[in-house]
Amino acid sequence: MTRDEVFQKVRDVLVDALAVDEDEVTAEASLVNNLGAESIDFLDIVFKLEQAFGIKIGQGELFPENVSQDARFVQNGKVTPAGIDALRARLPHVDFRSFEADPQLSKVGEIFTVDTLVRFVERKLAA
């Protein structure tokens, strides 16, 4: 499957899960900030990606989980450098560069873009 084909299928999933227009789903669009995704939508997206691509996505594999419960990783509502390293190791498909400038836990959902999902699916398909 080419990157473009993956993107189109990811776009179909997001149009369905988030009730957005096709042209809103650009590679750079943030799921939370631009496409209005809320917490339950992330679970919906995981389920729909599994169906669309015939893949199995483990819990916490695509979107981070349980970061906030580890005191080494979160202090005063911010993700520590150790936390970011741990996230990076766990989520290699995510670009954390912009998040590092203001690593507030509440904003961790905002780093996910359409491109993040495309990269994730590509990795899964190649594995």
Binding site: S39, I40, L43, S68
Partner: peptide, 14 residues
């Protein structure tokens, strides 16, 4: 429909 398992989500998401 989609359902949330409230206990799990409220605990983990903090």
């Amino acid at each position: 429909l989609m359902f949330s398992h409230l206990d799990h989500n409220m605990g983990a998401a903090g």
